[in-house]
Design a protein around this nucleic acid. Sequence first.
DNA 1: GCGCCCCTCATACCC
DNA 2: ACGGGTATGAGGGGCGCG
Length: 786
Amino acid sequence: MKTRLWLLDITDRVVDGVSETHLWGIDDAGRRVLVIDRRFRPYFYLLLAENVDFASVTPDVKKKLTPLLPVTLKQETKKQFFGRPVNALKLVYDNAEDTVSTSRLLAKIPGIKTSLEHDVRFSSKYLIDNEVNPCGWCEVDIDELEHAEDAQVDAVYLAATPPKPIDLEARPPLRILSFSTICYSSRGTPRPERDPIVILSLATNAGDVTHFMAEDSDQALIEAFIAYINAFDPDVISGYGINTSNWPYLLKRAQLHGLALQVDRAQSEPHRSVYGHIAVAGRANVDLYDFADEVPDVKVKTLANMARYLGVLKAENQTPVEDLEVAALWDDPAQRPRLLTHADHTAQTVLALTHVLLDFALQLANLVGLPLDHVGPAAVGFRTENYLMKQAHRLHELVPRRTRRPYVPYAGGTVLKPKPGLHENVIVLDFTSMYPNIMLTQNVSPDTYVPKEAADPPSGVSVAPEVKHRFRRSPPGLYTQALASLLTSRDALKRTMAGLSPSHPEYRVLDARQSAVKVITNAVYGYAGWVGARWYSRPVAEATTAWGRYTIKRTIALARELGLDVIYGDTDSIFVQHDEARTDRLLQRVQDELGLEIRADKVYTSVLFTEAKKRYAGLLPDGRLDVVGLEVARGDWTEAAKTVQEQVLILLLTEKSPEKPIAFVHHYLQRLRRQEVPYRDLVIWKTLTKPLAQYKVRAPHTEAARRLLEQGWDLTVDDKVGYVITKGSGRLYERAIPYQFSSYDELDLAYYEAKQILPSAHRVLAAFDVSEEQLRLPASRNPLPT
DNA sequence: GCGCCCCTCATACCC
DNA sequence: ACGGGTATGAGGGGCGCG
């Protein structure tokens, strides 16, 4: 018998000392199935030192193994390590838990260089070796199970063969459940030991929106949630911040009531897993917050902000509920319905956001080979690494161990000094995927690097400028093959998409796929320079940026030869006058001489530069303002400062003279003094990047955080603190108050004028020789209230 | 005690 | 826990001044 399985989740366990793998998925008839594979065995390698043969080490290995568990030894002669053929002993075990401890012991035997792949997760090896990907289809021969398995699925089977990847068009329809909770706290952050969950709202893609309310306690609420999940039987459970907040809270509350939070398909409970996330066996628990980083335009990553930006926050009619208000709303029978509406709305928003982000998550999981619930919480480096491990398997390359290394800095890209002032009709020319293409064309990879003392290999080498690192020309290395595959697949996806209407159902999937491919393509260079990477290689990273600097330098020279004035440039781009004939010739010459593609990107009808690098603003042909690096583009300036700067820029770039902008600033300052600028536009948001105790200086946002803590609020690393500056004397940090605890009358408006509005406006007006003095309100008029 | 200088710390951006 | 390059503001210490 055969089954075709779309892989949703993979778990493993040890039964009677033997590891087994559980494949949870959906078959091509839409049934939820579990396939148990007892055939795949844990293993690791012992790498033999050079000029050491199997015969001279095997007896020692066997001797050490005797008192240990049964192990099968295999001689591997087809493996490579960093591109060099090696001999390795493969030790195959029964129990994955035994491999790590014995690998360390055996690596000390003379003639053994090191142990390898003992530090790769068992389930990862399973997927990689079988070339099976999560969120993709596989085919497997199955037998009936001799004993019943306690799993909440339509069928449980035993694998009779290893699974084989197969190409089936569409994924099966998934049952999705999104939820959110509201906890009651009379003071500060709710504590699970003390404060109940008062509302749990959920929304499903079957169209149901439901909530459960606490009565005397939240026990019935939790029981109702468990019952609902088991009845609806979702494949995907999603939420916003559920890995850090909702799940841990629910688990603690359930524990206090003596309840088992049985919501998975294995009759067990959610538990913390490798990347600190919560795993729900047999389902995919997806925390959408983990994908918020993919949307850099959203600075303060609340659910509402994400949803608004992605266009899924339909009903904005209701006033948002602040954490501070929850207790009062719950306690007031007249207000409680508002809280319930808010809760339901939140769950619906999470579901809507899931629809937007899930395709990307599925494609990323499938591309890099991490299970759906792992791929979100896994950092970019680990996503990239998993993709590389899959490539390595195909090339018979052994996976290097994770080791601690010292950090040694190296030089990056070139940034040109801009020509300050207003420029008209400017085009931006960009290299397409500069670093990936450099690595591809020069065969830059950890396994093609020729060490300083080594002689040139027969294939010849390419030599990086400045740093002089050498890379053998052939055969293609691990990175090279990975990038070739990524770059060609993205091209193909783009071509297919071009032939489809964006409304075509396939289009969304292809677009999600190409985004996933792009993310990993762009991450490979950074991965190479990350000291935590298994395939870390400083020469690779350093050579890549050196070729990049050479490339941009030559491009500038070619532009000048063609009579094009270079106004600015950063790493892989140059800004020149928009002269079609000359830029066309430049693109051709760059392609011919450098073998890299440079493309016309944006055109600015007018663009303004200050003296500073990485900061400019321009008008696009459709009239939109594009702001780069300036305060408008930053999350740590007040909305007030950003609004003013944005208006000043629009007026400046359209009028090309400073009169109207100056008048606008004056007008805005008057409104500020009359308290007509909304209070929330005067809040400053800053991220806590470490625990409060580790700060070496007192800063406004750390002191505001301290005040929040005193009032019972929890703050963790990566939380944003919103504060305002109040009147009084002394340091700013003494006057920085969490915005919830202050009011308009207490604000130091002079600070907002002098340190927010005026600098951000002046920054862009300085190019027109406007002084900050000219932007201030005349002293006689509208004096500041004291 | 205050203003000034210079340096460090901290954050967030660009590519 | 992917890279380096860059701008900017506030804190903090040292110094001279009154």
